[in-house]
Nucleic acid binder design. Structure first.
Lengths: 120, 120
DNA sequence: TATAGCGGTATACTTTGGTATATCGCGGAT
DNA sequence: ATCCGCGATATACCAAAGTATACCGCTATA
């Protein structure tokens, strides 16, 4: 209830509109966020698996971006008490739900590309 | 027809998925893109109007970002043959249609914020 | 004992993005 | 004549984002 009201409010107020969209934007912007999220959308993965999945990323960036995503509540880091310890990264429920948003972005991107190509 | 196939294809291939979403992301990322698009979503505006709408933007950045958006096919720049010339910026049809995407982002952003606040 | 894989961190550097401040040509109003 | 608003551009600078390269402690395997 309150959720819906605040969404409606945010959509109708230019300032809140920009702020709320920006929140989402901040979660997924940066050179490596999408590749990482993309990798985790299919399955949970370990650090080195993600690294192999995204050949050009350095461990420094992967580490930093995973921390960002964890802080944002996108990713859950699970440490297993094996010897040596193993670590798994997976998307939170909220993280998984961003797939719908990304789908919309993909669709718009492809349509937009077509509409601008046909103009040129 | 072909459109739908390529969207389906893009969604099913991790590499194309990331690339296509990134296309959209590139159009709206940067500190001032959303405020500018937000301003133009409500109505077409002149340079100085946008500037007044976004108090802290410098003319240098406004000029640069408007050029970017124009190049991307988001914004149409119309020069009127008045004396002195007046210039109007408005969203293209494709540009206007990004509102749906932004709405989705807004909704996700608000829900995500609630779900991560309630966890903490 | 040496080597390789895991899950990273440390330091230094370059590149990109954004800011600050000043200025421009034009024309209309005072 | 002078100042103001419009629609910008030029130059210099600063900060954030990303890269390159080396290394760490741990353990299993050869």
């Amino acid at each position: 209830m309150e959720k819906i009201i605040s969404i409606i409010e945010a959509k109708s107020c230019p300032i809140h509109f920009v702020l709320a969209v920006n929140d989402t934007l901040n979660v997924i912007s940066g050179k490596w966020k999408l590749p990482i999220i993309g990798s985790l959308l299919f399955d949970k993965r370990r650090f080195t698996e993600i690294q192999r999945n995204i050949p050009k990323i350095t461990p420094r960036m992967l580490s930093k971006e995973l921390k960002d995503l964890e802080l944002n509540g996108m990713v859950i880091r699970k440490v297993f008490d094996t010897t040596p310890v193993s670590v798994e990264y997976e998307l939170s429920d909220s993280g998984k739900s961003i797939a719908d948003v990304l789908d919309k972005m993909l669709e718009w991107g492809i349509k937009h590309r077509e509409s601008t190509i046909s103009r040129s």
